[in-house]
Design a protein around this nucleic acid. Sequence first.
RNA 1: GGCGCUAUCGUCUAACGGUUAGGACGGAGCCCUCUCAAGGCUCAAAUACGGGUUCGAUUCCCGUUAGCGCUACCA
Length: 478
Amino acid sequence: MVRVRFAPSPTGFLHIGSARTFIFNWLYARRSGGAMILRIDDTDIGRNTEASLQSIYEGLHWLELEWDEEYRQSERLELHRKLAEAIFEKGLAYRDFTPAQAGEGERERTEGAWLANAEMRELPRAESDRRAAAGEPFALRYRVPRDPERTIRFDDAVYGEQAKSTADIEDFALLRSDGLPTYHLASCADDADLRITNVVRGQDHLSNTFKHVLIFEALAVEPPRFAHLPLLVAPDGMKLSKRKHGPVVSVTTYRDAGFLPHAFVNFLCLLGWSPKDDRERMSRQELIGAFSFEGINRSNAVVNFKEDDPFDPKALWLNAEHIRALPVEELTERLLPFAAAAGFNTDRAKLLRITPLIRERIRLLSDIATVADFFFVKELASYEASELIPQKGDAALALAVLQHACRVLSETPFEHDPLEAALRKAAGDLNIKTGQMFQPVRVAVCGRKNAPPLFATLEALGRDVSLKRIAQAIEKLQ
RNA sequence: GGCGCUAUCGUCUAACGGUUAGGACGGAGCCCUCUCAAGGCUCAAAUACGGGUUCGAUUCCCGUUAGCGCUACCA
């Protein structure tokens, strides 16, 4: 039974790289009929925030990603301590009474010194026990095999065979001097206890994995299968960080801008993974069906955002693709909150008529605010009278067109086909091109030149509004 | 500094020794057309560099360079 986990530390808003890690875990779990576990890695109590925790839940819920089990490391500290103790009793760890380094300061890197605290490593057990009993604080360090040195190995599902000499692994901490477990210990202890079969996480943990293999060995449990994911980086090649790159790395930014959760998941999947058959837009089922570790790349992927445009153009395109693939009813449902946020007075029934007119013209759900405003506002924003003048025409022609349109429209049924027939005939009456006929009418009713097809627009707007706006345009021209 | 990982169009990627190095986004152009979109077609655009191995390297090996990661009693 496959068991995978996503283990965020609640120290900031949900990062898109974290979301992607969740997704790859989830895809693998769903594909193999396994369990998806959410484990909150909150052992660093000082840095945890409730807001961050909420942001994780919020982001995951928005993405419509669900999990089967949930744990908090802070509630499992007994287990961590017990296992650390067991490792110590086996002689595979030692107490380090060196006071914790204050501040970050430059550490001396004289040859080998960083590897271990030789004095503490060799401290006789009796003395170690005495000092501990006397209440002297200590950190517990893993006693990495030195003599003879060994090669630690594991087979990464993405990066292949990995090997590292113990001569290059430092005596890392298992327990801090306040008794709390470090990430390495807590993570491995929980992975072992929760019977995690596959650890899928960011490549920044690739070199840590050797330490983890050592911990599993000390715990006498078979390590899980590892799969490391290439990192998401900024256009300058730097690892995406909440601090440096701000809102563009936050999942909620994409939600608020009007990305469809499935489109965003689709986009994230295509960063560092490929179905290898040129498919781009994929449904969730297709993603689950196509997912494999073999499809994962080994090099970092750039999220192509810019300062003036926070969204990767491909993400925008993919979102538009998903929008166009959505049934009108569902798209309308998704659009409703964005229409409300734009201050539009609307209801489901009205929006249902407008959705088909804008679905090919929006890339983000929030685009409804700028693309469909004229369907909702009472008064059109003011525009230049010159906009009403058609190609190869003048104000007089515009005026003639609008006056004629006014007469024709007041006696034409406001439905697509009759409107088209009437306005085409009107162009004939005036002996002008259809474009010259349509453009002034379009500007009059929409307030601008670029808008959805005219007849459907008129139909959606209705006779009263259309005629009123044409009358106002005529006034503007006089 | 040490250790590790990576390197194909601007970006995301395909090609697991033999291809005119493919697709997508973005860009340019054309077509369609009542405008804008959408759609269709076309074009420009890449194997970091140097050595090997091989009849033949994007692909395998070594080196260089560059980038990234780890090197905390953070995760």
